[in-house]
């Protein structure tokens, strides 16, 4: 019988990181070698255990703190941009935008965190429709939108 499979080779096999030839060699050896199979299963068990660890989401208050610290632009900078949300993946962004919008409309300086957190969470369940009046017409995004509308209208 040929030599046992190196450990690093077994780990790569588990991770799907072996090329076809190496995989075939490993499979041939494993089919005939119980110790290597046992080692493979042991390593795989640890990979699974690590993968099963519950994921930690960014705490809402930290998300808001990051946004407060880094999104230094004045509120109108956000409100004058048309927000056209992509259908998928935009909910969390919408939540943040809702928080920003709330801040800009309700809060002068230091806003209590609760309404923001509430908005942050509430917005996760709904899409945010921008008020047309808040949407300025002069930036690139809206120009693109207008161009689309125009194309539709000019077809006659």
């Amino acid at each position: 019988m040929n030599e046992h499979i190196e450990g690093v080779e077994l780990s790569s096999l588990i991770d799907g990181a072996l090329d076809a030839a190496a995989r075939a060699r490993a499979a041939a050896h494993l089919s005939a070698c119980a110790p290597c199979r046992a080692e493979l299963e042991s390593l795989r068990a640890f990979k699974r255990l690590a993968a099963d660890a519950p994921r930690r989401a960014l705490p809402a208050d930290l998300a808001l703190r990051l946004e407060r610290r880094h999104v230094a632009a004045p509120p109108w900078a956000l409100l004058t941009r048309p927000r056209v949300w992509a259908p998928a993946g935009a909910l969390a962004a919408a939540a943040l935008a809702a928080a920003l919008w709330l801040r800009s409309t309700q809060a002068p300086a230091e806003l209590p965190l609760e309404p923001l957190v509430a908005a942050h969470e509430a917005a996760a369940g709904q899409t945010l429709t921008p008020e047309p009046v808040l949407v300025a017409s002069a930036d690139a995004d809206s120009a693109a939108l207008l161009a689309d509308d125009g194309a539709g209208g000019s077809a006659e």
């Binding site: 960014l58 930290l62 998300a63 990051l66 946004e67 880094h70 999104v71 230094a72 632009a73 900078a77 956000l78 941009r81 927000r83 993946g89 969390a92 962004a93 939540a95 943040l96 935008a97 920003l100």
Partner: peptide, 12 residues
Amino acid sequence: AQTFAGLIARAG
């Protein structure tokens, strides 16, 4: 700012 807010939401 908006880009950054979106990135926090996506990658946070």
